[in-house]
Simulated scan of single mutants.
Amino acid sequence: MPGSDEELGQTGEMPDGSAPGPEGSSGGFWARAQAVIAAVGGAVGAVAGVVGLVFLLVPGLQPEAAKGIELVDSDVDREENIRADFTTPDSPPGRINMRASMLSVTLRNTSDDPVLVTDAVFHFSSAEELKCTSGAGGTELRAQYNIKVPNQGGTSFSVKRKMKYTVPPHRQERVAFSLGPEVEWSGNLPYIYTFDVALHADDDVRIDVPEATMIVTPDLLESYLENARRAATEGLSIPEPGCIRKEAEAVRKVVAEAKRPSPELREFSAELTRIAQRI
């Protein structure tokens, strides 16, 4: 009978003339498997070729490489005491110590190379001095904050701070900035700053830090509040009670509208509101 075990053993061939496969398998199966593998390999190669051609013809479709540095977090909160240098016309240079909020920025470098942060641009949408003067005046102080803000009212100006801050490969680093007036007088009134920050790195990456609102400086805040308390309890005309009430409402509105108010600003507003209610 054609195809019997006896006939196969004598000829060593399959009935269709092909050689037998390994024991327990047929030549037809292996032939089909090899054909499938060859077909899959050809299809993969064709797809890769088409994708490469598309990226070549349309460069905008290519995936962007990792930019290396990114913003992880930022906050406006109290830090360790700020030690600021100052000079006066009639005394040698000294130091002032105060506990105040700082703008803190945490950066992450996900690349294999270090990234250099070259500058920080602070854009101030508002820099307003409080209004209710107590009539005090005094010696000039020049405070050396990280960011020295010009003593100018109005809106929309920028302050650029050069930096040479390197974020190592695959590391997370934190940098903080203290803000204050470029020139202080002992009779200065507190300033309220609303600003955002753009950090620039040497790989042409720009990192935008969200808007924050701060009031500076702590020593000025306490003097201002003490004068307001005396006006409320002793009936003084300077500062004017009506001015204090208007100021309390204005500061309360700033806090309500601020995206990220500093702790000092919230506390100052709450205390000034309590004082105004007693006048």
Rank of each mutant, 00 (worst) to 15 (best):
M1E: 03
G3M: 07
D5M: 00
E6Y: 12
E6F: 14
L8H: 12
G9R: 13
G12W: 11
S18C: 06
A19E: 15
P20G: 13
G24Q: 12
S26P: 04
G28A: 10
A31G: 12
A31R: 15
A33F: 11
A35R: 15
I37N: 04
I37K: 08
V40N: 14
A43R: 07
A46D: 04
G49T: 10
L53G: 12
L53M: 08
F55T: 00
L57I: 05
V58D: 00
G60Q: 05
Q62G: 03
G68T: 02
I69Q: 01
D73S: 09
S74I: 05
V76S: 06
N81T: 13
R83Y: 12
D85T: 04
F86A: 04
F86H: 05
T87N: 01
T87I: 03
D90H: 12
S91A: 13
S91R: 09
S91T: 05
S91G: 04
R95C: 01
N97I: 13
N97L: 14
M98C: 05
A100M: 09
L103H: 11
V105D: 11
L107Y: 11
R108P: 01
N109Q: 07
S111P: 04
S111K: 09
S111Y: 08
D119Q: 15
V121A: 04
H123W: 12
H123R: 14
A127F: 06
E128G: 01
E128D: 08
E129T: 15
K131G: 09
S134G: 15
A136Y: 15
A136L: 15
G138Y: 10
G138M: 06
E140C: 07
L141K: 02
L141D: 02
L141H: 06
Y145E: 00
Y145P: 00
N146E: 00
P150E: 07
P150G: 00
N151E: 11
F157G: 02
M163L: 12
M163D: 00
H170R: 15
Q172L: 03
E173G: 01
A176Q: 13
E182A: 14
E182R: 13
V183M: 08
V183A: 09
P190W: 04
I192L: 05
Y193V: 04
F195L: 08
V197W: 01
H200T: 11
H200R: 10
H200G: 10
D203V: 10
P210F: 06
A212E: 03
T213R: 11
D219A: 06
L220G: 05
E222I: 10
Y224L: 07
E226T: 14
A231W: 01
T233R: 06
T233F: 08
I238K: 09
P239N: 03
P239Q: 04
A248F: 01
A248H: 02
A248I: 03
A256M: 00
A258I: 01
A258E: 03
R260I: 03
P261F: 00
T273E: 08
